[in-house]
Nucleic acid binder design. Structure first.
Lengths: 255, 255
DNA sequence: CGCCAGGTTGATTTCGCTCAAGCAATGTGG
DNA sequence: CCACATTGCTTGAGCGAAATCAACCTGGCG
């Protein structure tokens, strides 16, 4: 499941799989020179994981960084009583493992595959080397992590000030922006294949409450559901809900 | 209140105030070369703010970074209805403004002075220049922001899973670690001069609930209070509380 | 003195958690 | 192919934590 392990398993290795110029990768790797790219490509280990596979485990030391070429990954935290919380969902074009890599800490959560995923693993030492020799690359990284920090703080603020219903709507809006499939009839389908339990843990609520909230939204005509697919016919209704239904008089500020 | 403004006000300027080798600064600036330091010192603007002053306002563009030489600063967010939330307290040796600087976003919260504060302001352009020419400096910055991200995610997790009482204890523990004054009798005094309302907003609760929780802790012998000072005679009692009183079966994991 | 902001407390209501039951879809073994 | 277990999800009823509302207390301060 690990870079280190993969090195010893030639059958899983193939290189240079993702560092060509595809648009989502560009953001991250565009600053690399030919030499940098050569270094990267000589150490990258690409691998495809089946649904359910573990990419790394909570508590593991961080061996490097995984660039997500394709697929969907869940970042999960488990507490001492075995309760499990999904804290992030990571998809195509994103990177995981950078926080522990840069802070020198252990993985504080595990990564598991939600949908078949192809990743490009780059060992910590190579990333550090690239950061040191290529300052533009370091700047891109700084910007990336600064934005991640902004998002985390925004979520923190929402968790502190919004009630369950509103948090669900916010989650739906985020899902919509990231994974919404716009159909010809103007409606949007969002399919995120996680259980209600995981969905609930993402917003800090219990599955029962989520169920009730969703029922309410359905009866209110905000959404339709079919299993794990949400259908939104009019996106405006969601944002309208946030405007009208200010549980603590909340609205988004200055961003 | 601003770097830009300060430039036009010679009376408030004085330079090279903080970039000598004092231990808390070391973390951040130790990687700078003499040339870097010269550049930094030729552009740094140091200033002392009185209690209540605004260092920057929510929604402002980010002009640079403030290194906190001394004092205490509150980071405050205000929503569209005028509700105010204290989201951070920043003290000596810490830095504010780096997130919007690096992400290229506006300030999403304002900074106000809680206790008389001396800051060293460095314009964005200089920081960016230093990050580009000195890769060790960039690495220190990456590590700093990665740790900040880790803390934000930890708080997010706690906000989602812990009840009000436990969140207060966690806040007290954090205060203890950062600002606890250890007295000769073994007790620890924590004085953070913010209102109960601000304290409540920091943990996502209402002042009434905080009041009740504190009363409970007092009657349970966990803490004593005198205005805005908390007295902790035995720190172990706090951590014990967290162990025994697992509202959602929580304990800290893997960190 | 009266006023006001900050703080505490009590009474009441609301929200969301807990627990338990039921249901549909899927899987499994006879 | 059916009986049965399992898993994911929903729903209802009851309860507890925390918000809300209102009263009151205290210490500055004009």
């Amino acid at each position: 499941m690990y870079g280190a392990a993969l090195v010893n398993n030639p059958s899983t290795q193939y290189k240079s799989c993702c560092f060509n110029n595809n648009s989502r990768n560009a953001q991250f790797w565009s600053t690399l020179t030919k030499q940098d790219m050569a270094l990267l490509n000589s150490h990258v280990i690409c691998h495809t994981y089946a649904t359910g596979a573990a990419i790394f485990m909570q508590g593991d030391p961080c061996e490097g960084l995984f660039f997500v070429e394709r697929g969907l990954i869940g970042i999960r935290k488990i507490d001492s009583d075995g309760h499990s919380y999904l804290v992030h969902i990571v998809g195509r074009g994103e990177v995981i493992g950078y926080r522990p890599l840069l802070s020198g800490q252990l993985h504080r959560a595990g990564a598991e595959v939600i949908e078949e995923t192809s990743t490009c693993f780059v060992p910590s030492s190579i990333i550090r080397q690239l950061l040191l020799v290529n300052s533009d690359f370091a700047m891109v990284f700084l910007e990336y992590i600064a934005k991640a920090l902004g998002e985390a703080e925004e979520r923190l603020f929402q968790m502190a000030t919004l009630n369950v219903n509103t948090r669900i709507i916010h989650l739906l809006v985020r899902y919509h922006d990231r994974w919404g499939k716009h159909l010809e009839d103007g409606s949007v389908h969002i399919t995120v294949p996680i259980t209600r339990d995981d969905l609930a843990s993402m917003i800090g609520a219990h599955p029962d409450s989520v169920s009730r909230a969703i029922r309410k939204f359905k009866s209110g005509g905000l959404i339709k559901t079919d299993g794990r697919t949400f259908r939104i016919s009019e996106f405006g209704l969601l944002t309208e809900y946030l405007q009208e239904n200010l549980p603590d008089h909340q609205t988004n500020v200055s961003d």
